[in-house]
Design a binder for these strands. Structure first.
Lengths: 146, 146
DNA sequence: CATTAAATGCAACTTGATTGCAAATATTTT
DNA sequence: AAAATATTTGCAATCAAGTTGCATTTAATG
């Protein structure tokens, strides 16, 4: 198995971010790049374990550093658990659908929301209960404080 | 202190939802109606405690029943914690800004997102790191299963 | 007022996530 | 290349949000 898929390159991504190429970071990044959709920490652990066992804490720290460097995006859920996805050029910001029953997050096409809703109203549809627009950042006071 | 503010009425809201008028439910709903913005469970506890001590578990159960009856909306955050706000006519769905530093959630005007972003770029600005559109509901398989 | 159903409180527990610190691994310097 | 330094990792313990089971209390019903 190679260290790159059709899209992103593990080594290049880490270098660009100025992060050292540790075995664990490479394994996590590889799993993220090859993911079919947003992954939980548990799922990331399962997938990296296939090749090498990584400590849960290490995965959290790696994800945290990836997030700081905008390599990945974090998607919080209603169930006190976050999911993670690549934030690379090949995976631009897009809406997500979260099933509150099976707790699965799926990606919506990066359309205007109205179109996305039409798309969802199609044949194999979901029941939509609510739509949240969530802006993350740092408020003025916190910026001034640092 | 009365049981209604300029907007919503505690008793009417509970009756409409078919929920019994317990002391605790009324206290929580009153706090929610009088809230200046989304509240955490901890904050709700603090505010209800001023008049009567309510168990944490009870608050969770009350919020859960309010959510099921669309009396409130739940807003999950990056920090494994949810915030809650009224879902009444006077508080229509709108975007939120979450400061990842002080962990405060503030409401954005219910404008088109592009306008809201302009608004945010104004004089007293926030630093925006990312915008998430999050659709909650039940996926097809889970619907069929129930 | 008595009966029945629903809601609450408490204690214990589950789970996602974090912290402190020692050991291991990378990077830098000589 | 080896030694010195800085970074990263793993483990154990811990924290905090949220949940569950069950006995008790409170509200709704007749």
């Amino acid at each position: 198995m190679t260290l790159e898929n059709e899209h992103c390159n593990v080594v290049a991504t880490l270098r660009k971010a100025g992060l050292s190429r540790t075995t664990q970071r490479m394994a996590v990044l590889k799993v993220m790049i090859q993911a079919d959709g947003p992954l939980s920490v548990g799922e990331i652990l399962k997938r990296t374990d296939l090749e090498q066992r990584i400590n849960k804490v290490t995965v959290y720290r790696i994800l945290s550093s990836f997030k700081e460097n905008s390599i990945i995006r974090e998607l919080p859920t209603d169930h006190g658990m976050s999911l993670y996805e690549m934030a690379c050029l090949h995976n631009p910001v897009h809406p997500h659908f979260y099933c509150k029953t099976c707790r699965t997050m799926s990606c919506l096409p990066p359309l205007r929301l109205s179109q996305a809703l039409d798309w969802f109203a199609g044949p194999s549809t979901f029941r939509i209960d609510d739509v949240h627009v969530h802006v993350n950042g740092v408020c003025r006071q916190c910026q001034e404080r640092s």
